[in-house]
Design a protein around this nucleic acid. Sequence first.
DNA 1: ACGCTTCGTCGAAACGCTTCGACAATCACT
DNA 2: AGTGATTGTCGAAGCGTTTCGACGAAGCGT
Lengths: 352, 352
Amino acid sequence: MATMHDVARLARVSVSTVSYVLTGTRPISQATRDKVLAAMAELDYQPNAMARGLASRRSRILGLLMPMDERGLGATETAFVTGAAAAASAAGYHLVLSPVGGGDLDDLRRLASQRMLDGVVLMEVQLADERVTVLREAGVPLVLIGRTGDTSGLSYVDIDFEQTVREAVAHLVGLGHRSIVYVNHSAATLASGYGPALRTRDAFVAAMTGHGLEPVMIPAEDSAAGGRAALAAAFAQAPELTAVLAMNETAIFGILGELTGRGLSVPDDVSVVSMVTSPQVAELATPALTAMTSPGSAMGRIAIEALLRHLDGPGDERHQQLLPCALETRGSTAVPRRPAPDTPGRSPSNGG
Amino acid sequence: MATMHDVARLARVSVSTVSYVLTGTRPISQATRDKVLAAMAELDYQPNAMARGLASRRSRILGLLMPMDERGLGATETAFVTGAAAAASAAGYHLVLSPVGGGDLDDLRRLASQRMLDGVVLMEVQLADERVTVLREAGVPLVLIGRTGDTSGLSYVDIDFEQTVREAVAHLVGLGHRSIVYVNHSAATLASGYGPALRTRDAFVAAMTGHGLEPVMIPAEDSAAGGRAALAAAFAQAPELTAVLAMNETAIFGILGELTGRGLSVPDDVSVVSMVTSPQVAELATPALTAMTSPGSAMGRIAIEALLRHLDGPGDERHQQLLPCALETRGSTAVPRRPAPDTPGRSPSNGG
DNA sequence: ACGCTTCGTCGAAACGCTTCGACAATCACT
DNA sequence: AGTGATTGTCGAAGCGTTTCGACGAAGCGT
């Protein structure tokens, strides 16, 4: 393995000159530069990342911290990752994914304090997330995908859940649906303070109330069985339901299965909208799902770009940005077959 | 950030002594050790990974190189990753995932030559995989998940596709199915030399022939639409089919949808077996899929352990291991409703 | 009491790079 | 021609570890 010394000797210049050619920190004449580059090519020289990192106190490595649970990464998360990796690579940085789970906070602390990562993008952020605290204490530049409850002083990119839910509800109401059930993540997930679950819940209540309709939310385990159970619960609570809105890529398959099992057709009897879903997953179902399409790779890219800005300028401007999901109409929504009953018995107290 | 010097000064010992306490390279008396540990705790000392890496020429970082395509990681791949991460962490190594695509071979070469990774596990290996060549030339210790055509001198862990296909076919034949269609990955994937697709193809031909049955294989794009098209093609080629074997987690949903669309019931009219599938995905379908369950986290763990053995002992023993998938019977397979026609017109030449 | 290991510790030399201060040479103005 | 800024290069001092050789102090058999 050739070192900088070898290159310098072969090119008959000093080591520092070679370094300047590489980093562009100081001007180097064309003639010298050519000599050096030729020597590097001849020796097949590759700078040693460790040495460079030690001397410059910059590893040029960015971390993408993502808890990996059993379920795997959906196409949505994968799009984040590829977007982020592309952005990092374009800026001359490496992006490494670290599958730090929720439990190993010490592991995270070690990772952060070892000065191996120039900065970090944190995924799947909880409303109260200790990882954020750990990382901030360690002084690691940080950008969130998602956001904590208190975002002061924090940079983040997140989905605009409020807007997304509003659009989804508007789409269904526009078709004539009056009884819409929202299938959320599990009760445990809600209790753990998972932002997307809480925000969409609140947004759903607001949107439905705004239309003068009663909001019914059902939590569901992240599994097909969970989806089935949720649908049963939904019919128990709102027998007249004609539409299901779901943010649970796993449960939704159970919902569809149960609907078919009950002899109900999608979309004629019941319309289904999936929230924050990638086209790939939406196409998996039969019929293909009308969905609020997640912003995909853009979110990863934006997060990395914000992080890089933090690294360069020590400026204190925080990047806080919400991205909407776009409604993509496919085959799972339609005008309801049974006409909307004009407001069922138990009308909302604040009714209109 | 405290350095080793600070610790040494506070503990009134030399830097090297601190280092020996940390690495255990040389014996240190209990008294000294305690002093040093106390000093480290007081200063909240964390060793600098770069400096350590530079001096020891060991980064204690392992790379898991996985091409990230649009589709995302299935639960199967995720299980590999978590298994690998756990094994690495247990051995005091960090595991980083690098989403190097197939295209950026130069990127890979750079990553490998920068001496930032002590070793590498390569996923999604093609039969002729240039990445293997690049990595070997760079002299990076390497373990494959999957395998190339020529595995001499290479360590790998892979699924025993031959055995898996044999078992799947045996299961269906045992139920009484005579006309079984195998839905593989796309023609393009086959042409690109993707090992699993090719090995299962050959294994399927062998297994069917062994039972005196005619093997019919249909390639399918990795999408629901691809699955639908494949099923149509399957009925065109083998109208009497009663069972589908598929190794294509995406297409299988299209297959199920198309089956339902044609008014055929699963499993009464047509049985379906999914190959190399995680329980999570199998449960997503309605009915839940009988599947050959992938070895999951074990594969990742075994790969990392093999890699670590390479790092320690410079021994030349290669680790080559095949893991079978286990048959898990769920609701998608049953005795065929229409009795097997006693061998249709075009009987296999080597018939029994 | 004699050499001989083994134990515990130290100082100093790497590891391969970046970066700072210095300095000669060139250039552009007066 | 003289001044000051600019350009291009060099040598050396780090960056925070590990690791090697050395060496005094014990412990052992004789």
